[in-house]
């Protein structure tokens, strides 16, 4: 489904070259949920932006369904970290969700149905006529997720999607994500800095090293599904996986964001 080969990214400014990502290769299966974690500055967001076609790697190749990515691929949804900046405040919730469809789906009824279905999936059917700024942060991020779902994506990219909400809301949104993933069955690549989150959500966790980044390790998550916040996080396997990811990052001595 998605294949990244020898991805590298270097920045050049005023003569000095900064090597952010040296060599990252991995692939993602159809319908898989892959989480990407790594220390801050390891280029995980850059990687995601390149998969989205918003950025170009310095060298290496990214293939989505066998096609090299040179511009944002079709049938892709993206959820950005900062919901308050990616939603249009002058449009209602349903207009925001429908906007991409207006130029993709010809039939008005179909557009309306897809919008409604997406809003229902994130539990916001009753807020279609509200404006984003009338909603809480968590609800705004649900709108962003609904907008991504509405295009019926085969690939959903998420860049630290729950980093800007409080802990309680975060847990709710994580479960919501698992639920819509079940319902829509797309492939998901989710970047996060929260190790618990990566283990809780992912089929596999891709751990990047400090910059210049390489793949430190890939941790398969053998936790049973369906998962839920109480049982899964108290599973002893969960604790083991956490430790494994944590040690791969090499964050000994740093406090893990486990207390979130």
């Amino acid at each position: 489904m998605l294949e990244v080969r020898s991805f590298a990214k270097r920045y050049e400014s005023r003569g000095t070259v900064t090597e952010a990502v040296r060599d990252v290769s991995f692939s993602v299966e159809q319908g898989e949920l892959l989480c990407v974690v790594g220390p801050s500055g390891c280029g995980k967001s850059t990687l995601l932006r390149s998969v989205a076609g918003l950025d170009r790697p310095t060298s290496g190749e990214i293939l989505v369904n066998g096609t090299p990515v040179t511009e944002p691929p079709e049938n892709m949804g993206v959820v950005f970290q900062d919901y308050s900046r990616s939603l249009l405040p002058w449009m209602t919730v349903s207009r925001n969700v429908r906007l991409p469809l207006d130029y993709k789906v010809a039939d008005a009824g179909e557009r309306q149905a897809a919008t409604l279905r997406a809003l229902e999936a994130v539990g916001l059917a009753g807020f279609a006529d509200h404006y984003p700024w009338q909603l809480s942060g968590g609800m705004q991020q649900r709108v962003a997720i609904a907008r991504a779902l509405a295009v019926n994506p085969t690939l959903l990219l998420m860049d630290e999607p729950f980093a800007s909400v409080d802990a309680q809301t975060r847990a709710e949104l994580e479960d919501l994500l698992l639920q819509v993933w079940q319902e829509f069955g797309m492939t998901i690549v989710l970047v996060t800095h929260d190790i618990d989150e990566s283990v809780y959500l992912g089929d596999r966790v891709l751990v990047l090293s400090r910059p210049p980044s390489t793949v430190a390790t890939v941790v398969p998550v053998r936790l049973p599904r369906p998962r839920n916040q109480l049982d899964t996080k108290h599973d002893s396997l969960f604790a083991d996986l956490r430790t494994e990811v944590l040690s791969a990052i090499g964050a000994h001595g740093q406090s893990a964001p486990a207390a979130h």
Partner: peptide
Amino acid sequence: VDPALLHMARVYRLPRRVVFSKIILR
């Protein structure tokens, strides 16, 4: 104009005139 909005527009492949009238101008 917030680059995040322009990224969003590119990701969802909105046509140029729409980006102008509905996002940039607004």
